[in-house]
Each structure stands twice: as structure tokens, then as C-alpha cells.
Design a protein around this nucleic acid. Structure first.
Lengths: 395, 395
DNA sequence: CGGCTTTGTCCTCTGAGTGGAAGAAGTTCG
DNA sequence: CGAACTTCTTCCACTCAGAGGACAAAGCCG
């Protein structure tokens, strides 16, 4: 088998993506979908089988005559995804159809620097390899929590990743694993994950807003990630909400993140706990020594009115920014994701209320705003999808 | 000659666009640019000549051997553009290369309704026809000041165009002129105009902000207009600047348009005139009975500090919104256009100052913010470009 | 078991496109 | 002025991808 099997033309690439996205198909059904003569289709499928990318899988039920042969992606196809977060690493292995076969995760501070963190990630991949899940790796997608030069495959001046600036992540990992590698912003990967496996499957243009340590936005235009001219598109954390708001780490006042980023949420929760306004938050602070978004969610779920209030306020500010972006971008769907998606429907309700009130009516006429249903998987599925789009394209 | 000559394949379409955008070329130079064998190129060019779309134009200078034949778009090609504004109609005729051969314009209130306004537009076209500028019309592009369903070729619930909702503009004009017609938002056409003839020629992703009666934004992604899922993308006039700002016509408070639309500017100017703070504006109000953006510009140019202050304030608010959009969209260029572009560099300086201060550094690192240089021509050039992109594409 | 339907393979035909050869048209230099 | 060299264009034979028909294989139904 060739080292790095890739489709040889657009037809083969199309067939691979079809099998990835729609699952195994009979040759006859494929013939109905793609615009190719039967002879041509047979030739291309045979070549894909020769390349080891596709294989036969028995016969389909009869449609009234001879039974058609089913083809599927080779079950030996493997994609790897690294999702590097601000405080965590997720590593997953998928098959050719982006089904997650193994997923490990650990706490890890991205500020330890590129070599340390990437070594940890490779160690985690080693664990999965030990489980016998991986043979040949056909491609790897990597997400990092900061702006990326997609073309160069490296972070550029990332604010929360000291030591990563212009570190050649793509080439280093490519060298290590001997497979194609692509690097992108983690929020973009989540958007791709939603596009592949989530609610965005049927939508061409949508936004994914991730609220976690930072606040970012994945932008999908016509089924593809839009990255902007320098790869920083979607960097909405420092959009101005108000001139006289809290001072942000970036130096300006009233940034969205200063209102509702991870640090802001912890700050507000601890203030509420210390001031005695919220006994529940005070108890949680007592227990854990510090508070985070998770604790606010717990308190809110337990009925603490101050916690609910904090979430409402945050939702309102996110909504104010999002309303502007919806008017501007006119998306077909907005997905709210990230740690705070667990804050649930109080948050969502507030965001919806502001957006539906403040955006252009034509833009909100048929605009669902939903919470992500993929939880932690969006990032790694997106990573696999990113690289599979690349591998499943004509060289 | 056939009724409606169109290229027959992608190669012909490519050649036509090349001749449109780069001007006449020798056959040899075309051979260097396009990836076609000499024989193939000759065949396609011959077919284009047969179709009447292209013609020979003498011989080029020698490059050291036999002189090559120059080809150019047929000088008989004609595109028509209607730019319907809130208070004006512009009609222009261009040749195949988007050179404006004739341009007439008149005051006209769009609120008179679709049939009245379009009849006026056709009358204006009649004037140009009387000048002998027009033979066969190969296509028509129409811009209207409101949201458009591009697919259906009609306005949809346009706020400032009563009586136009779902009026089949494309089909009506197509019937009348017997040529392909496309309808789009007027701001989108201005963006296309800049893309063709303005500063945006070398940029793939950019924003055009038009400040006039309303405030809108044309979005270009990868060299093509982005319209959003319901055609209302770029509708930034009602993005929130502040919760406790002036009440807007839309019912919300603190919209951008309530700060710096045509009406807001007139309101502020008249207030300054009446309060006696600005003798110059008071004099202008005395003379004209009412004030508009133009008068503020005049007063500012004459050194009136209050007028300059009004422009500064407006620029600041535009900058605040634009800063958010720049962080989100990460464009390669921002163009400021519309009536107030005449307000000149005081406005631009203020916008720049706010954007460069408040946007993500990576997004502003190499971001020119400029005034449009096309003045009134952007809309009509964009209209011609819109339809020529359509006509110069493989059927 | 025979007629009918669907599927897969084989084979021929067509048309698009390539690249070489040769002629046409210019330039340069002795 | 003519010979040698360049560049441009046309002509022509050749290649190859892809289409579509014919036919065999494999199934269903009565």
C-alpha cells in the first residue's frame, strides 16, 4: 500500500466525501447521485479500492433485480485530532467517517509552551496507540486557542500562548507522525465539528460563538471556514459593549470578555460570594477556594438568584454583540458553545431575547439560536473533518 | 447575430473576463496567461469572434519575431446599470470593459413606488438611447436601496421603499429590455464597483461602508458579494452603539443610524444652528430652509468648529461599530463611501483612530481604511459588473 | 421455470485537447 | 541586402477521458 493514499481526481475526492458524510452506499445509489456514467463510476471505485481507501461490504437489498454491491470507506482509515485548549488537551482518533474511536483528555496549561504541550499531546496519542486503535494515520488536525496563520500552519502573536508565536506546529507534528497535518484556531474547528456532526449540517452560512476562557466566533461561509485576510476573523472577545465598562486585560474598557469571559465570570461570582449576596456561591467558594463558570452554573441550577442574575447579565452582553453580528452577517444559524453552554437555558433565553429584539427583522426571521449538542466532541470532530477535507481532495 | 450571445464554455468565459478586466491583449499574451494549448486558444477565440463578443484589433508590437494579433471585446457590447437611490436615479451605459459611455441622473423619491420609479429610469435610458450610445443591450444590473432577494430578483420588505415589496423588478425590466437582468442591494453594487475599478482590485475580502440616508455595508468574500441567507447581510444601520442614545426610527435606542444617518446629521446640524452655537450653520439654515450632510460638510470645510465636532462625533460612532466588524471579519481593506465621503478627512481620521485603537491588533496590522475615489460612479460600474459577471459566464 | 428488472462489465465511438511540424512574418547582424 | 534566428499562427495526427449501448449475471415474481 502506498505511503499516503490520496484520491487522484475530483471524482474520487467527491466519492470519498460522499461516503464520509452519507455513510456506506450501494454502487447503484452512488450512480444515481453522482453525475458519471456507470463505466466511469466503476473505474473510479476500483481505483479507490486499489488505493486502500474504499472497500466492498457485501450486497445491498434488491431493488427489484440483481442486488447491488455496497461500498464503504476502508475501516482502516484513521484521522487524529488534537484540540489544545487554554487549560486542556483533547486527543481523539476517528475512522474515515469521523466516528470517534478513542478520546483522551487531560488538564494542561497551554502557557507551558509549544514543545511541552505538544509532547504531552503526543504522549496521549501514544495511549490510544497502545489500545490498538491506530494503524497508519492518514491525517491530523490540530486546534490551538489563538490566531493561526493557516497557510503557514503556525500560531501568530497568540495572546494567551506565550512561547507559541510562529512555532511551526504543522511541520513539527507532520515530521513526527509522517502524515498530512493542518493547524487552525480551536473555535474554527468547533464550527467544522458542528458542520459535520451537529445542527449545522443543513446550513451553508452560520456562526459558532464559543464562550470559555476567551470568547471567539467561528464563521462558516458557504460550507467553509472563513478566516479573514490574516487568520484572525472571529476574534470577537474584545468587541466594545460599552465605553464605561470594566477594564479588560487588553487595555480597553468595556470589552465583551471583560463582561463575560471566564475571568470576568469568576470575578463576579467571587464578588457575590464575598459580599454575602449569595450564600450558595459563598459556600462553593469556601469549599473550592476559588470560583469558576462551572460553579456559577451549579449555583444557578440549584436556584441561586444571584448566580442566575450573573448569567442573565452575561447573556445580555453577549446578545448585544451578537445582535450586531447577526445584522451584519445574516447567518442561517447561531450555535452557542464552550464551557458556559452548560449554563443552559437561562443564558440562551437571554441571548435570544436580545438578538431577536435588536437585530434586523429580516435577519432574525428564520434564525435558530441554539446550544451546541456536541459538548467536548465538537473540537476533535472538527479537527478530523479539517484534515479529511484536505486528504479527501484531489492532489 | 444571435439574440443573446453568451460564451459556450468556461474557457470562453475566462477569456472574456480577462479582456474585460485587463484590457485588449495579443493572442500570444493570452496564451501565456491562460492554461490552454495554442490550438485550443485559437479555436475558442475564433468562436468568440463568430459570436460577436470579440474582435481583432490590429497587430501588437513585435516581441522579437512575427507580430501577434491583438484581440479585444467587441466595442458594440453594451451593459446598462440602474442605480436607484433613496432620492435619486442614476442610469449609465457601459461598454464591455465597464467604461461608462453615458451617465444621466435625476432626483426621484423612491417612495413613489416601483412602477413610477422604474418608468422614470427607463425614460432616462431612452435619453441615452437617443444619443446613439446603445445598440443591442447585453445585460442590465439594477441596484435598489433596500434588502433584495437576489434569487428572485425583487426587494423584500424594504423599509424605505413602500410599494416595492416583492415587486418583480428583474422580470419586469427583463421583459422590457429583452436582456438578462440582475437586481441587488445598492451598497453591494458599490462594493462591486470598487472591486472592479477602485482600490479593492487587489483585495479578496473587504468591506464597503456606505453612509448616506441610511448606513449599509457591502461584504466581499473571496472576490464575490456575500449576501447572507436571506439577502440582508451588511445591514449595519441598526447596530447598537449605546443603550441610552437617541431613539431610532426602528424603535430601538442608540442605533448607529440614529447617531449618524442622513436624518441624524440634519437633526444635529439644525439643532446647532438654532441654538446659536454655530453661526455658519445658522446662516446656511437661513438660506436653504433646512440642512443636510452637504451643508455640514460645507461648514466644516469653511472652518466651523461645531460642524467639525458633529463630523468627529459621527465618525467616532461609525468607528465604534466598524471596529467590532473589523475584529469579526478581518478584512483586507475598508472603504468609506456615500454622501458623507465628501465630509473628507476629518471623518476618516476619526474613524481610523477608533478602529485602530479598538480592533484586534492582528486585524488592523495591515488594514487600510480609505475614502472611495469613485464618487457617484461606484454604483453604476458595480451594476454593469454584476451583470457582466453573469453574462460572461458559461451558460 | 420462464419472463421481467436491475446491476455490473465490456467494448466501441466521439469529441476535446495536446503537441509537433511547417509556414508566415519580423528582427538582427554581417 | 541577404542569411540566420525568433516569434507567431495554422494545420494535422495522435492521445485519452468519458459516454452509452450491448450483453451477461443475478435477483424478483407468478
Amino acid at each position: 500500500m502506498r505511503m499516503s493514499a490520496r484520491p487522484q481526481n475530483v471524482h474520487q475526492a467527491r466519492l470519498l466525501r460522499l461516503l464520509r458524510d452519507e455513510g456506506p452506499r450501494s454502487r447503484a445509489e452512488l450512480g444515481d447521485v453522482v453525475r458519471l456514467s456507470r463505466s466511469k463510476l466503476a473505474v473510479e471505485l476500483d481505483r479507490l479500492v486499489e488505493l486502500g481507501l474504499v472497500e466492498g461490504a457485501g450486497l445491498a437489498a434488491s431493488r427489484g433485480g440483481r442486488r447491488s454491491g455496497i461500498v464503504r470507506l476502508s475501516p482502516r482509515l484513521r484521522f487524529v485530532a488534537f484540540d489544545i485548549g487554554a487549560t486542556s488537551i483533547d486527543v481523539a482518533v476517528t475512522d474515515g467517517a469521523m466516528e470517534v474511536l478513542g478520546h483522551v483528555s487531560e488538564e494542561c496549561d497551554v502557557r507551558q509552551g509549544a514543545t511541552v504541550v505538544l509532547d504531552r499531546a503526543l504522549d496521549l496519542l501514544g495511549k490510544l496507540r497502545d489500545e490498538g486503535l491506530i494503524g497508519q494515520v492518514h491525517g491530523t488536525g490540530i486546534g490551538v486557542p489563538g490566531p493561526v496563520s493557516f497557510r503557514d500552519g503556525m500560531p501568530v502573536v497568540p495572546p494567551i500562548m506565550p512561547g507559541w508565536d510562529r512555532f511551526p506546529v504543522r511541520d513539527a507534528i507532520g515530521q513526527e507522525l509522517g502524515c498530512p497535518v493542518l493547524v487552525d484556531n480551536d473555535v474554527n474547528l468547533m464550527a467544522l465539528g458542528e458542520l459535520h456532526a451537529g445542527l449545522a449540517r443543513a446550513v451553508d452560512d452560520f456562526l459558532l460563538v464559543k464562550i470559555g476562557t476567551g470568547i471567539g466566533c467561528g464563521i462558516v461561509v458557504d460550507g467553509a471556514i472563513y478566516r479573514g485576510v490574516s487568520g484572525s476573523a472571529g476574534d470577537i472577545g474584545h468587541i466594545r459593549v460599552d465605553d464605561d465598562g470594566p477594564i479588560c486585560a487588553c487595555g480597553n474598557a468595556g470589552c465583551l470578555e471583560a463582561y463575560f469571559g471566564g475571568a470576568a465570570l469568576a470575578r463576579d461570582a467571587e464578588a457575590a460570594a464575598r459580599s454575602g449576596r449569595s450564600p450558595q456561591l459563598a459556600a462553593l467558594l469556601e469549599t473550592h477556594g476559588q470560583l469558576s463558570a462551572v460553579h456559577v452554573g451549579e449555583a444557578a441550577a440549584a436556584g441561586d438568584p444571584v448566580a442566575v442574575q450573573i448569567i442573565r447579565e452575561g447573556g445580555r452582553h453577549v446578545g448585544q454583540v451578537l445582535a450586531g453580528l447577526v445584522s451584519f452577517f445574516n447567518p442561517g444559524l447561531v450555535i452557542i458553545a464552550g464551557g458556559v453552554a452548560g449554563l443552559g437555558h437561562a443564558l440562551l433565553a437571554e441571548i435570544r431575547s436580545v438578538v431577536y429584539r435588536r437585530s434586523a427583522p429580516l435577519a432574525t426571521g428564520n434564525l435558530p439560536i441554539v446550544l451546541s449538542e456536541l459538548a467536548g466532541a465538537a473540537g476533535v470532530v472538527g479537527g478530523a473533518r479539517l484534515i479529511s477535507d484536505h486528504v479527501f481532495s484531489a492532489s
